[in-house]
Design a protein around this nucleic acid. Structure first.
Lengths: 338, 338
DNA sequence: GTGAAAGCGCTAACAG
DNA sequence: CTGTTAGCGCTTTCAC
């Protein structure tokens, strides 16, 4: 920067003013400075700026499972919105391990990120994420249990409730819910929606919630095989997410069970392959990209207001899911329902 | 840091030495300093350290399409290897646009990342990525055309050649290659492998390479519908990647064409759903996670050696793909081959 | 409008 | 072994 100043015959503060478009530098000097910048291939050192300013234009993002295409969609929304606002993204993947998550948090804290976007790996452990962390945090999808925090979520409960109702409306009575251990608040909402719908119709719950997440496809496959081989197998299966859905579909395939003729299947997350499968899969589509966008917007709001003085009340943004009815769900036939 | 020093009754340099495990501070002082750090919740300011040291422990990663699960796998390998070595990751998605890629590059340059990992959106434009960029660069999967650069790639040519041979060995003669415009060097390798195998067996080429990438599923669907409706449809279809594969599968579904009875299908990338589909899909599996790991290792090597003096010869790491034979490819039946 | 100078938090000489 | 000090590249008062 000194070199630029020297070449342009001005001082560093003038160069700084030009770079930041302060609009207080005369036009001829401005162009002279710009020419010098160009000539020297000068690029401002953002880290140094951050040091001086006491804040950085970096957002930290902690995702529980980057392998899950759902979170990738969220991430796309986050990135697009971030760069639109001049922010860069530091991405961390916790692989569903809270301990690693804490590690990541520490690093991001040391990097002095301007704000933090977190989809916790465990909603019960998530409150710990807030201790001793200076930057504003916005939670995505999963929120710490029983806490009011800044977050962007979807209406999991309602969506699940309505989806279950839809299956009931098709005449299904034995509807299984494949879920895995409920360590995400979103998962809790989803199973609660299912429960409420089932109980309102006085139908028996059939929940598979014991296995631990991480090896979702294999777990769902295993659980589902057992379920389908039982004496009174479900006529409909409702999956917590796209991973479990794949496991269930695989189970049907292995047992050569026809879908939807023998068993209806549906789940959360609308991924590309859901339309390509034969039959195409009925799903609940979350606005994942939009979730990412909104979370950045909320975070930037938080960052700005935290520059000010007053503590603001945490805000919760709730986005709506939509039900995509396809071929994998059908009216139950009498002979099976027997 | 001054506060920590004061509380521990030492000077800042002692604190610094403790933080960086210089091993030159006495044990009792060390523990006193650590206690002070703990008490104050002090976290070293990495940005300031970077400023002082003239280098940062951040790796910049530019991916062409984060939506593609293949690159996500690569990214996982990168992240794991990066944090193992004390580096953080700054991730950028170019959405297959070279212009955006350049923008990202500029930002990462301003952030003074220690090194850069790039899977270019366009192998022809990629040479521009090297201009005026101070940090070492390692290319992933796609390399700038006709240039010797540091890179980690897979043996696309051989894998494609062998896969085509496998199809020929099953008795197929009309084998279509669905590829899209060849802007990735990896794509070029793949089509060349196909060509060589076909020409060696004196079979006619049938390549679909005209459409532009980005809307892969739709494009492949469209192209494939046309192909399958033609007077002499292929008996086998070979896809450049997982996205095109989905499009092809969708086309088969729409036309109610049986796979593998009427048409054999295979492609690159081994994703979760490939085994769940009915039939399960024969694919070429790239070592994606390992690609990520190796690229970080190579980059760190480059960073270290660039600290030294001599320019080192660019290194090319080539990893091997493996052919996963499943149900979607079968021996051609005489009646169809007619 | 523009330049000189201080200081953000840290590390590395160097002096003790 | 430990403390003092200079300076990394930038922004920002404050004089001019």
């Amino acid at each position: 920067m000194r070199d630029v100043a020297r070449l342009a015959g001005v001082s560093t503060s003038t160069v700084s003013a030009v770079i930041n478009n302060k609009g207080i530098v005369g036009p001829e000097l401005t162009s002279k400075v710009k020419a010098a910048i160009e000539a020297l291939g000068f690029a401002p050192h953002i880290g140094a700026r951050g040091l001086r300013l006491g804040r950085t234009n970096v957002i930290g993002l902690i995702l529980p499972d980057i392998t899950n295409p759902f979170f990738v969609q969220v991430m796309r929304g986050i990135e697009d919105e971030a760069i639109k606002n001049g922010y860069s993204l530091m991405v961390c993947n916790s692989n569903l391990r809270s301990s690693l998550e804490m590690k990541h948090l520490e690093v991001l804290n040391q990097q002095r990120v301007g704000g933090l976007l977190v989809a916790p790996a465990d909603s019960y452990a998530a409150r710990d994420l807030l201790v001793r962390n200076c930057a504003p945090v916005v939670f995505i999808m999963n929120v710490p249990m029983k806490m009011k925090v800044n977050c962007v979520v979807v209406n999991d409960f309602e969506a699940s409730y309505e989806a279950t109702h839809y299956l009931i409306g098709l005449g299904h009575r034995r509807i299984a819910f494949i879920g895995g251990r409920l360590i995400f608040s979103a998962s809790v909402e989803r199973v609660e929606g299912y429960r409420k719908a089932m109980q309102e119709s006085a139908l028996p719950l059939c929940e598979e919630l014991e296995f631990t997440p991480g090896e979702d496809i294999g777990n769902a496959l295993h659980v589902c095989l057992k379920l389908l081989r039982s004496t009174a197998p479900p006529t409909a299966i409702f999956c917590l997410n796209n991973r479990l859905l794949l496991g269930v579909l695989r189970a049907l395939r292995e047992l050569r069970i026809a879908c939807p003729e023998q068993v209806s299947v549906m789940g959360f997350d609308d991924l590309d392959w859901a339309q390509v499968f034969d039959p195409s899969i009925t799903v609940i589509a979350e606005p994942s990209y939009e979730t990412g966008q909104k979370s950045v917007q909320l975070l930037l709001d938080c960052i700005e207001s935290s520059e000010g003085s007053a503590e603001v009340e945490p805000r919760e943004v709730v986005l709506k899911c939509s039900l995509c009815i396809r071929e994998s769900t059908a009216r139950v036939v009498a002979s099976i329902e027997a």
